[in-house]
Design a protein around this nucleic acid. Structure first.
Lengths: 248, 248
DNA sequence: GAGAGGCATTGATATGGATCAAGAGAAGAT
DNA sequence: ATCTTCTCTTGATCCATATCAATGCCTCTC
């Protein structure tokens, strides 16, 4: 365990499953393409030139709240939880990062939240400085990032409605429907199978509920044939009912 | 009431209190400067060239959720509430816009929320198209707007913690301390006098509480000499106590 | 200055979700 | 294999906040 002198190596399980240079990483390229559809080919290539792909095992810390922010990340595989902790230990999960998502786009000096992996995660790391310089040279890229940030803001505002004005059952329904949509992003049809890489506690901390309430309501929805609980996820049966509960 | 054929004129009370061309409006220029400190003088001048100043009386709708978004606004005086309504009428206020704040920076096709004035408001309106074109020509401006959007996202995430994981009393304290900070923005010292242009109902809909709970807790804090309720606001007495309640 | 409507406050009561408690799997560690 | 730890579930009880209800301002309007 102590044979590595590089601190960051402690976290790293293995290089990206595809043996590759950064430019040719299938994982990274595919995701970068999905994110940067508005960019020119040469801009894409340049973005990939700065990407450092890596893998992390489950339940590892990626970065911590208040810590100096040195990197921007693009998740290529797996899921990450983003959260804030109050001094007395209460936790609020502010989001889950899925493949294609960027972390640290705000370019702030310090991280506003902590992040750790829920599953094995593949990601591309960019130096914040290099990324910032690249962005300065490519206004189109900045425009694209601004759109991403705006979309994130919109999701955060939707979450404010869920947290402030919805019942526990509606929260669960909105969470499942929202996650289903996000998993389906990029493909043309949505699956009724929704993977849940996070624990019930995580879901509770995301929705402002306790573990017990999450568990009880999932059981209730299953009893009412709205969904089926399967290993590591749920299968949605009664979409109408869920849509009704989650409707904006 | 029907002597104006211009629909937007119905809302408008009077031109900006300062008689002026857009370029020379003291209101607009001062605020634009606060927002665009990183910009060159010629960029500032260009921004002002597109600004259309106007005034609105209290309790007027500025724009509505789902409506096509045609404008970007910069508030120069007064306060605006931003909110989303659920189909059954429940309301979540997602923020209050104060002098210096921009509305509609996401540049989305449609508004994600509704906005109406709490007080008489002075603002500068920009055509979304013109604003977008200007932004395309001025990467520095885009960078600045991205920073503003990132800050808004950060505020939204803080609000998620408040909504999901704080008690009613902590919510009130965090709200008052946050508003105090925002009113003091730009000046070098914070006042203990916090104007509250919004109703108790608005505060409740912002914090995920009922009017009654807001009223009860304000009274409780006043009874405990933490604050004094004054016309249209509060005077904070025991800052330590409030900071303790609101601490991140 | 009388009436109407909006806002704030306060009291009584109800309840949704929290808390406390216990047990049953499942996954890892030794 | 056995022990430990973690997660999930379910039940009993509690309590913070919602709901329901009444009253007293203000500030309009006429």
């Amino acid at each position: 365990m102590d044979h590595s002198s590089n601190l960051t190596q402690i976290k790293v399980l293995a290089p990206c499953p595809n043996v590759h240079s950064a430019v040719d990483c299938e994982h990274c390229k595919v995701r970068a393409l999905s994110v940067c559809a508005a960019l020119e080919a040469d801009e894409l290539a340049e973005l990939n030139r700065y990407a450092h792909p890596f893998c992390l095992s489950a339940k590892q810390n990626l970065f911590a709240q208040e810590e100096e922010s040195t990197s921007v990340y693009n998740i290529t595989d797996g899921a990450v939880r983003l959260y804030k902790i109050l001094p007395d230990g209460r936790r609020q999960i502010i989001g889950f990062a899925l493949p294609g998502d960027f972390l640290g786009l705000s370019m702030a000096e310090r991280n506003a939240f902590s992040a750790d992996t829920l599953t094995t995660v593949s990601a591309c790391q960019f130096s914040r400085i290099e990324f910032s310089n690249l962005v300065d040279k490519k206004p189109q890229l900045l425009r694209r990032l601004h759109n991403l940030a705006s979309h994130e803001l919109s999701l955060a505002q939707d979450q404010m409605v869920i947290l402030g004005r919805r019942t526990a059952e509606e929260k669960i329904a909105a969470f499942l429907m929202g996650l289903r949509k996000r998993w389906g992003r990029g493909s043309d049809h949505l699956s009724v199978l929704v993977p849940l890489p996070m624990t019930r506690q995580d879901i509770g901390d995301f929705l402002g509920l306790t573990v017990e309430t999450v568990s009880r309501l999932m059981t209730k929805l299953a009893r009412e044939k709205v969904l089926v609980i399967v290993p590591d996820g749920v299968r949605l049966l009664n979409m109408d009912r869920l849509e009704k509960l989650a409707e904006t």
